[in-house]
């Protein structure tokens, strides 16, 4: 499955469009990570626990998008976009969407 954030796949030709595919996940931080991040918050800098958490979540959102794209028979997703929104205190939604296409 090829992913690109451009309206096309460079070096390939789009032969069919399948419409929008989406993938999302809502994650809450766990207590252990929260405490560590709270300590790290004192000195500032990177909060590794959160970086990893969001990375995993985003990966899952992409996976879900790719699964949906596969189910409609696409072999690439173009113009992929991300959006993050805090749905509640301490929880975040990670959302990935794009256009499923077939390239040759």
């Amino acid at each position: 499955m090829l992913l690109s954030n451009i309206e096309e796949v460079p070096g390939k030709r789009i032969v069919e469009f399948y419409g929008i595919v989406t993938g999302s996940t809502v994650r809450a931080k766990n207590v252990g990570r929260d405490i560590m991040a709270g300590l790290k918050n004192i000195v500032g800098g990177e909060l590794k626990g959160y970086t990893e958490l969001l990375e995993e979540s985003r990966k899952q959102a992409i996976e879900r998008m790719v699964t949906q794209a596969e189910s409609v028979g696409a072999n690439a997703v173009v113009n992929v976009r991300f959006s993050t929104s805090s749905v509640a205190q301490g929880a975040a939604e990670l959302f990935a969407y794009g256009t499923a296409v077939r390239v040759d």
Binding site: L3, A37, I42, G44, G45, E46, T51, L54
Partner: peptide, 17 residues
């Protein structure tokens, strides 16, 4: 050109007290 795929890099940062 040949497309390899989507590349990402992310980081969570915060300011100190």
């Amino acid at each position: 050109v040949e497309t390899i795929g989507l590349m990402m890099g992310s980081v969570v940062v915060s300011v100190d007290h």
